[in-house]
Nucleic acid binder design. Structure first.
Length: 993
RNA sequence: GGCCCGGUGGCGGAAUUGGCAGACGCGCGGGAUUCAAAAUCCCGUUGGAUUACUCCAGUGUGGGUUCGAGUCCCACCCGGGCCACCA
């Protein structure tokens, strides 16, 4: 056939709702929306602002503009927020619903390195492509509030926030961040001591200190600071990497190159100052509970005690059995040299202190050198002398320790995980005194103790800690019980009088002098009191969260607004110097090599001219690192409020309107009523659960900083968070374990074939790598965007992961076709509605549908909302002509879900102003009440009959009606009723024997 | 290893506070329409027994609480996710 379309073209009615017509309608309304700026919402102070309306700020996690474009999995959340935003507009809210791009980052830079093209060019091209894909889906984002983190006018404010953080300190007294000037006041007045032993060893007063000394002390308080810390250094990529950019094998996520832990001087952010507030403020947030838990775990607050163990002087008498005696023997007094060898440990179980039989320090612990002896003490057990692969034979403690440290450093994280159960370590040759019972305990180093947590040293209580127990068994150390385990446990875990595993539960303290007989919680409190009295320790709290590594050796990121003078003193630029724009360079690639000991060379160093700044004839060097990808995403939501403001991050009045919490308190239950549940910040933030900790934690941290400094009016950025599920899809692997193009796989009798070869089916997250991506453009072409939107929402609940199945799309496609055909003549395109009133049944069903759909829309239950519309539309299909008074609310209910077809029908219904800002239909409660309802009658819990009664019928009436039922009577033959449970409006249950 | 989430027809999924399991859609079967097909419309569709009325079983497995359990409790199995020697 020369023209395959001609046959179908002749027969398909001109106004049948098929892909082609859908596309025409969609293009028409997308243009109309643009022309009218339909989705732009004005700010307070703007000409058209309607101050009488309440507000809703509905937002997605903004995407990275990838070069391959969207697949149908990406817009799931965007469609949901668009639906919800459209619904809220019809409910009379001022709705802020913007979209932006998280556009700095490694992929664009890598592409630039390969092609030599500036990353800005490719990134902007990708953004334009994604924008047109989103436009085609009919997403109603505010056209005047778009942004990208790479826009100079945007990152100017990212840099400004950095300066605000740099120029502030954490005032513990006020429990908030304050400008650095207030710190200087306190230093000058002596309210805060001028430095510590490290920054001010001679204990000078503030005014006696030199300028550089003063600067060092101020720097040590700043919330953004430079520090030399161990970081993930990847020489092959030439950059340091964040932990999340390093995979489980200890290699770079990108390129699979080796990564080394090396101490390097980097920018840090003092997020640890905010641990408690980040923890406490989670409570009132309307967030998924698992996400809150992940944040809590990440912050990792644990309560316990810090206890000082004193190391015994080399060659000291080790025969002491009581602490107080040892203390005397050792001549322990204030200022005695031995006091410098206090080893501080952190423990969450101070109640087990009497069971501490040895100590372990992290291999990097600063006291290790001092503690390591030249000779093994006489009492050294053979097993203590070193257990680790490649330990030298017959070595001295010094050699052993040195060798072990080298071993531990070389060990990758994977190796560590692999032999989690097998402990390694070395005895230092030194002993310490257990402060409560005076026992001498050997001091080991082992890599199961981490320098980064607590004090980097532990007291080991092998009977009550799994890890300590494992170590003790290997190193032949005693395991005395100091917490009484339950009898059952003892039966199982004590064999031949020997402990088989550690008891880490709670119970009565035993063999513990002052706390004997106390339950764990009381014992903890009492022993902490005792330690504090004796000056041996104190109650303490520890956090797992570390300060945030904030610099990268990359080109494609925000430059720091920081310069250095010739002494290396840090100098912050001011707002007038912003933005600090990225320089042009001829090569975007970082220096790369294979040498783990090489130093990072930031690519910005190549911009020799840019890197030097001359101010008042003096030369300064620019900071050459750039900010991490998280910087822009930490605060972008605030810029949506007023992206064009050149004088401030955002105007106070504008910020307060969109962010400020007018009403407080979270409603119990899962449903969310935007009228009453309002705790401030963004009203709905939708995105994937993969950002549970990093982005959402960093963002909360910055927001709290900005709150402390008076730039925002709410303590939290996102009042309500919702995690959408993933779109999964079938992927197919051939016999050589390669993925094959899923779209070309054919199914025959439950088996799958690709090019006649049988392939295996799996299910996974949709994406390029599994070769199972389905493009939204393709779907829009075949069915139209409205059908695609409906299908994505109809697949299942928004929060669930569910498989994509192109075959199923026809279901919602047919729904739209049927609805269209119910209202429009397929041949003439003319409207089919009548002005006559609908029949009562239809009217009742309409109002039931309105009530149901409203409830579903409010709780983001779009799948069931659609089901209700389908059900109602199916009912209408059998009617000759649809009443206008039914058609109009139906089209309105459809409009958030399938806005283009709804606009078109609305126009056909004779309205000229568009459907977007019309009022969502309201159910008439009178029509929701039925005269008579059908209730089940159960006998012994099994349905034996149905009765028709008034919904208000009382239990007595129900019982009478039930007994009058023929089938019920039959089933009751030979039985006598023992009990009747009748619940009005629900059911009747007859208990009979 | 720890913690979290989930398991309902051939498939995706519905089921207020415990109260008629399987809404709605896909697929499948049957019918109407058509010269035929596509499209459309109607009927059926958890399994088993039954001509039928109807009966029995049934929400991963095993126990429990209850007049009544997909829903609550205990133990276990399977799948997915997060963390992983955090003292």
């Amino acid at each position: 056939m020369s023209n395959p379309d001609s046959a179908t073209q002749d027969k398909t009615p001109a106004f049948r709702y098929v892909g082609k017509l859908a596309q025409q309608i969609e293009a028409k309304w997308q243009d109309r929306w643009d022309e009218n700026q339909t989705f732009h919402v004005p700010n307070p102070g703007d000409a058209n602002f309607d101050a009488s309306k309440p507000k809703q700020f509905i937002m997605d996690m903004f995407p990275y503009p990838s070069g391959v474009g969207l697949h149908v999995g990406h817009p799931l959340g965007y469609i949901a927020t668009d639906l919800y935003a459209r619904y809220l507009r019809m409910k009379g809210f001022n709705v802020l619903h913007p979209m932006g791009y998280d556009a700095f980052g490694l992929p664009a830079e890598q592409y630039a390195i390969q092609t030599g093209q500036h990353p800005r060019i490719t990134t902007e091209k990708n953004i334009a492509n994604m924008q047109s894909q989103m436009r085609r889906l009919g997403l109603g984002h505010d056209p005047q509030r778009g942004l990208a983190t790479i826009d100079v006018e945007f990152y100017k404010w990212t840099q400004w926030i950095f300066l605000e953080i740099y120029n502030s300190w954490y005032d513990d007294e006020a429990d908030r961040a304050r400008p650095i000037a207030t710190l200087i006041e306190k230093l000058e007045s002596g309210a805060i001591p001028a430095g510590d032993g490290e920054t001010n060893p001679e204990g000078k007063t503030w005014t006696q200190l030199s300028q550089n000394e003063q600067a060092a002390i101020i720097d040590s308080h700043r919330l953004a600071y430079l520090a030399e810390i161990p970081v993930n250094w990847c020489p092959a990529l030439g950059t340091v990497l964040a932990n999340e950019e390093v995979n489980a094998e200890g290699r770079s996520e990108r390129g699979d190159h080796p990564v080394f832990r090396r101490p390097l001087k980097q920018w840090m952010m003092r997020i640890t100052e905010y641990c408690d507030r980040l923890l406490d403020d989670l409570e009132p947030l309307d967030w998924p509970e698992p996400i809150k838990k992940m944040q809590r775990d990440w912050i990792g607050k644990s309560k316990g005690a810090e206890v000082d163990f004193l190391a015994v002087e080399p060659g000291g008498d080790s025969s002491g059995t009581s602490f107080f005696e040892s203390r005397k023997k050792l001549g322990w007094a204030e200022g005695s040299p031995i006091e410098e060898l206090a080893i501080r440990v952190f423990t969450t179980r101070p109640d087990t202190l009497y069971g501490a039989t040895y100590m372990v320090l992290a291999p990097e612990h600063p006291l290790v050198d001092q503690l390591t002896q030249d000779e093994w003490p006489e009492t050294t057990v053979e097993a203590w002398k070193g257990q680790f692969p490649g330990s030298p034979e017959g070595a001295s403690p010094k050699e052993m320790v040195q060798s072990y440290r080298a071993y531990a450093e070389s060990k990758s994280d994977v190796d560590r995980q692999k032999d989690e159960k097998v402990k390694t370590g070395v005895f230092t040759g030194s002993f310490a005194i257990n402060p409560v019972n005076g026992h001498l305990v050997p001091i080991f180093i082992a890599d199961y103790v981490l320098m980064g947590y607590g004090t980097g040293a532990i007291m080991a209580v092998p009977a009550h800690d799994e890890r300590d127990f494992e170590f003790a068994r290997q190193f032949e150390l005693p395991t005395p019980i100091v917490v009484e385990p339950p009898k059952k446990w003892k039966k199982k875990n004590i064999k031949d009088g020997e402990l088989v595993s550690a008891f880490s539960g709670e119970g009565k303290a035993v063999n513990s002098e002052v706390i004997d007989g106390l339950e764990t919680q009381e014992a903890k409190a009492k022993i902490i009191g005792f330690l504090e009295e004796q000056g041996l320790g104190k109650g303490a709290i520890n956090y797992r969260l570390r300060d945030w590594l904030f610099s990268r050796q990359r080109y494609w990121g925000e430059p720091f607004p920081i310069i250095f003078d010739e002494d290396g003193q840090t100098i912050a630029l001011t707002i007038d110097d912003l933005p600090v724009e990225l320089p042009e360079v001829d090569n975007y690639a970082p220096e790369t090599n294979d040498d783990p000991d090489s130093k990072p060379q930031p690519p910005l160093g190549r911009a020799k001219e840019w890197a030097k700044v001359t101010i008042d004839g003096k030369e300064y060097a620019r900071e050459l690192n750039t900010m991490p990808n998280w910087a822009g995403s930490c605060w972008y939501y605030l810029r949506y409020l007023q992206p064009q403001n050149n004088n401030a991050l955002v105007d106070k009045e504008v910020e307060s309107y969109w962010m400020h919490s007018a009403k407080k308190g979270k409603e119990k239950g899962d449903t969310y009523d935007p009228q009453t549940s309002h705790i401030g910040g963004v009203d709905l933030y939708v995105g994937g659960a993969e950002h549970a900790v990093l982005h959402l934690l960093y963002s909360r941290f910055w927001h709290k900083l900005l709150f402390d400094l008076g730039h925002v009016s709410t303590p939290e950025p996102f009042g309500r968070l919702f995690n959408q599920g993933y779109v999964q899809a079938a992927s197919y692997k051939n016999s050589r374990n390669f993925y094959v193009e899923a779209s070309e796989v054919e199914e025959k009798d439950g088996q799958f074939f690709f090019e006649d070869e049988e392939v295996k089916r799996e299910f996974g997250k949709m994406g390029k790598s599994l070769k199972n991506a389905v493009s939204p453009d393709e779907m829009c072409e075949t069915y139209g965007a409205d059908t695609l939107r409906l299908y994505e929402m109809y697949m299942g609940p928004l929060e669930a992961s569910k498989p994509w199945n192109t075959r199923d799309i026809v279901g919602v496609y047919r729904f739209l076709q049927r609805l269209w055909r119910n209202l429009v003549d397929e041949d003439s395109g003319e409207l089919l509605v009548t002005d006559n009133a609908p029949d009562e049944e239809t009217e009742r069903l309409l109002h039931k549908t309105i009530a149901g759909a409203t409830k579903d829309m409010e709780s983001l239950g779009f799948n069931t909302a659609i089901a209700k519309l389908i059900e109602f539309n199916n009912h209408l299909t059998s009617q000759e002509k649809i009443s206008r008074s039914v058609a109009e609310p139906l089209v309105q209910m459809l409009s958030p879900l399938a806005p283009h077809i709804a606009e078109e029908l609305w126009e056909k219904l004779g309205h000229t102003d568009g459907i977007t800002y019309t009022d969502y239909p309201v159910a008439n409660p009178d029509l929701l009440v039925e005269d008579s309802i059908e209730l089940p009658v159960m006998i012994n819990g099994k349905v034996r009959g149905k009765i028709n009664v008034s919904p208000e019928a009382n239990p007595k009436e129900l019982e009478e009606a039930a007994l009058a039922n023929e089938r019920v009577a039959e089933s009751l033959e030979g039985l006598s009723i023992k009990k009747v449970i009748a619940i009005p409006g629900k059911m009747i249950n007859l208990v009979a024997k």
